[in-house]
Write a protein that binds this DNA or RNA. Structure first.
Lengths: 150, 150
DNA sequence: GTTGTTGCAAAATCTTTGCACTTCT
DNA sequence: AGAAGTGCAAAGATTTTGCAACAAC
């Protein structure tokens, strides 16, 4: 379980404070509420899922605010967008985790993370061979998780 | 240059004919027009780009038809959807090409393709280790192409 | 008191759908 | 003739934006 006092929360808050100060923006209740909900979610969450989880305690907080806030978090380096094979964007925390790729179950929607340095090295090699300078990448394996493949 | 008589065109037409027959669907002028425009495009094309390229010769062909037709082509195995980091879907031919992954230039939008069996094997290995059964994957390297990185 | 922020509704995008009309077979 | 397809406009879904009221500094 993710607790509010964990390192992830502290790091995210400090990143956000820094970003807000640098840009002359403000620390608001709404940003705090969305930040907590986002970090507590502990999975790849969409805006409307966030809205649902927030609405019970803060019914007045609207979707426009969440969109604006998640864009802010992305700029601040707290959240990362992932589009997977869907139309809508999902967000995952970008703090307190190294880079990783995804295994996505097309049956139950479960998303697991993995990391493999050998693949990263091969990607670098392929890009260099073509004179490409890679800034970031995305590797997603779609299929059936152990539960769904029986 | 892609010619209308090339293998790609023949293979796509034959695939489409087979799919239409199997499903009891019909071979129409519009499907032929969209198929030709799609295959001639010879790059990752979006619905509105297709619409523009078709509108000059067939102004009455609407976007709904293109959406429906591209969905049909995807089912028939002629086209493959790629969403990259955009909101809209792009399509690429699924015939006459092996599986490949993408290098995407974030400056000029250029998309190159590559293939690497070593990476594919590592993906398989990672998935197996977790009991995941991979159906398909997606690997995209984002960065600057030789022209744009100077 | 400024200036940024929010909440709502409206607009913008991309995609799908309902329906009358047309076109295959 | 009958069933499927098309074209248009309308509706859906997701995301952004304009603006008056509000809150942070």
């Amino acid at each position: 379980m993710v607790r509010k006092g964990s390192d992830k929360f502290k790091e995210a808050r400090s990143l956000l404070r820094g970003h807000l100060e640098k840009k002359g923006l403000r620390w608001t209740q709404q940003r705090e509420i969305v930040l907590d909900a986002f970090l507590m979610a502990d999975r790849h969450i969409s805006v409307d899922e966030l809205l649902v989880s927030i609405r019970s305690s803060h019914p007045e907080l609207g979707h426009a605010t969440i969109y604006r806030t998640m864009n802010l978090f992305t700029e601040a380096g707290i959240a990362k967008e992932s589009r997977f094979d869907e139309e809508r964007v999902r967000y995952e925390p970008a703090v307190d985790v190294g880079h990783h790729d995804h295994l996505i179950c097309t049956v139950c929607g479960d998303i697991e993370e993995f990391e493999d340095n050998r693949i990263e090295r091969l990607q670098e090699e392929i890009a260099q061979k073509r004179g490409f300078q890679v800034d970031y990448h995305r590797l997603e394996l779609y299929g059936k998780c152990p539960k769904c493949s029986n």
